[in-house]
Write a protein that binds this DNA or RNA. Structure first.
Ligand SMILES: [Mn+2]
Ligand SMILES: [Mn+2]
Ligand SMILES: [Zn+2]
Ligand SMILES: [Zn+2]
Lengths: 141, 141
DNA sequence: TGAACAGATTAGATTATATCTAATATGAAA
DNA sequence: TTTCATATTAGATATAATCTAATCTGTTCA
């Protein structure tokens, strides 16, 4: 991803391109996993310029609000974030809390009657179980 | 729900039936919504016996672990809980964070290939948007 | 029945996560 | 360049949840 593409991406959402905000977005785009705010804070501060903790949280909030970043709440753990690239679902490990991507496939929407006057924005499918590292090793014989 | 049914339900999961644990389970079963730990704490303590905050959290953890209660993580807010009665999906309001039930319907599982060696326990469908109270009123004419 | 004891409860301290404040700095439009 | 809405910052504060270690109690079984 070119630097200019990220800047245009931010501008297109009405967000000023600051070094701190750029760093968060660039990190999330090149990152395969689902880092927490603290992990992002540490990663972007390993190179200059330095961002404060408040700025990391502010920018994550703004990027999520702009629809460029997705926030994944995990029970009992810090929230995790990913840049919204290709659509995909999430698998959350019962044991270690890791969030992993699962190939996207279309999800049937609920019947209009069961939604009532609610305004539906998105359907999100979350899988739960044991991730590759936490699953019991296959029994050898 | 009879008191004995709840007690048998706890015993069936290997959990001792204490007044505090019983109170949490009974409250969640008669409750239509999705209260937070603090709301449960306040509700069960409006009648005796008094439960401490730690006990509310301990019991919620145990009940979730036993599969009797479901925990719903909401971004930026306290976790919410419901007793697992009839299967259903959840709608989470973007604006107020309220969690509401949506009639259950079967969800297609992902292709085995995209799961790899992960062990799938459940598929959870979460709808997001604006709840009835937060949705804009229909334009009158 | 009544020990015995694994499991449960408790108050309060502590940790983890996230937001707020208000002073200062800066991106980008004109 | 100047202007100013927007962004950043350090540190305080708020909120959510867990930990600790002393005490208590439900259930089992002799
Ligand atoms: Mn993802
Ligand atoms: Mn529910
Ligand atoms: Zn795992
Ligand atoms: Zn709402």
């Amino acid at each position: 991803m070119q630097p200019d593409a990220i800047k245009r991406c931010l501008a297109g959402s009405g967000l000023r391109s600051t070094p701190q905000r750029y760093a968060v977005m660039a990190f999330l785009m090149k990152q395969a996993g689902h880092p927490t705010a603290v992990e992002i804070f540490e990663a972007v501060n390993r190179v200059d310029p330095r961002s404060s903790r408040a700025t990391i949280y502010n920018n994550l909030r703004d990027l999520v609000h702009a629809g460029l970043v997705r926030e994944v709440a995990v029970e009992g753990r810090a929230a995790r974030f990913d840049a919204k690239g290709m659509r995909h679902h999430h698998f959350i490990c019962d044991r270690c809390g890791n969030v992993e991507d699962v190939d996207w496939y279309d999800v049937p929407r609920p019947a209009a009657a069961s939604l009532g006057r609610r305004v539906l924005r998105e359907c999100e499918l979350i899988f739960r179980g044991l991730c590759t590292r936490c699953a019991p090793r296959r029994v050898s014989r």
